[in-house]
Simulated assay, not measured.
Amino acid sequence: MPHAAWCSAVLARVLSPGEVQAMEAARFISFPHRTVITLIAHGRTAPETAEALQLKPSTIRSYLATAARMLESSRRMPALVHAAYSHPSFPAPPRSEECAPKLSPGERIVLLHHVRGRPCPGSGTLLSKLNARTPAHAIHLAWQLGLLSERSPSVRPPPDSPPCLPPCPG
Rank of each mutant, 00 (worst) to 15 (best):
Pro166Thr: 07
Pro32Ser: 04
Gly117Thr: 06
Ala68Met: 10
Ala100Asn: 08
Trp6Pro: 00
Ala41Gln: 03
Pro135Phe: 10
Ala92Gln: 11
Gln54Met: 10
Gln54Ile: 04
Leu53Ser: 03
Gly146Ser: 10
Pro94Leu: 12
Ala22Gln: 13
Val36Ser: 07
Glu72Thr: 11
Arg151His: 12
Arg75Met: 11
Glu72Tyr: 01
Pro101Phe: 06
Gly146Glu: 10
Arg34Lys: 11
Asp160Cys: 09
Ile109Gln: 08
Cys99Gln: 15
Ala26Pro: 01
Ser73Val: 03
Pro78Ile: 01
Ser96Val: 09
Ala79Phe: 04
Val10Glu: 05
Pro163Asn: 00
Ser89Thr: 00
Met23Cys: 07
Ser152Ala: 13
Leu64Pro: 01
Val110Asp: 05
His87Trp: 08
Ala12Gln: 12
Thr59Tyr: 10
Gly117Leu: 06
Leu64Ile: 09
Arg95Gly: 02
Ala142Ser: 15
Leu165Val: 08
Arg116Leu: 13
Gln21Gly: 06
Arg108Leu: 13
Phe31Tyr: 15
Val115Gln: 00
Phe90Leu: 10
Ala79Gln: 03
Thr35Lys: 00
His42Pro: 03
Ala84Val: 05
His137Cys: 06
Ala46Ser: 11
Asp160Ser: 11
Phe90Val: 14
Phe90Gly: 01
Glu24Trp: 02
His3Lys: 13
Gly106Asp: 09
Ala52His: 04
Leu148Gly: 04
Cys168Gln: 09
Pro47His: 12
Lys102Glu: 15
Pro93Met: 09
Glu24Tyr: 03
Tyr63Asp: 00
Ala132Tyr: 10
Leu39Gly: 00
Ala4Thr: 11
Val115Cys: 15
Glu51Met: 04
Glu19Lys: 03
Ala25Ile: 02
Ser104Arg: 12
Ala52Thr: 07
Gly106Leu: 10
Leu130His: 05
Pro2Gln: 14
Pro17Leu: 08
Pro93Ile: 07
Val20Gly: 02
Arg108Tyr: 01
Gly122Asn: 09
Gln144Asn: 03
Ile60Asp: 01
Arg13Lys: 14
Phe31Lys: 13
Ala132Cys: 11
Ala9Glu: 12
Ile29Leu: 15
Leu112Val: 05
Leu130Trp: 02
Ser89Ile: 02
Gly43Met: 05
Cys99Met: 13
Val81Thr: 09
Glu72Met: 10
Phe28Ser: 08
Ala83Ser: 14
Pro57Asn: 08
Arg34Met: 06
Leu55Gly: 02
Val81Asn: 04
Lys56Val: 00
Ser74Leu: 07
Pro47Leu: 12
Ala92Phe: 04
Phe31Thr: 04
Ser123Trp: 03
Arg133Cys: 02
Leu141Pro: 00
Thr45Asn: 07
Met77Asn: 13
Ser74Trp: 01
Lys102Leu: 14
Cys120Asn: 02
Ser73Ala: 15
Ser89His: 11
Ser73Trp: 01
Cys7Val: 10
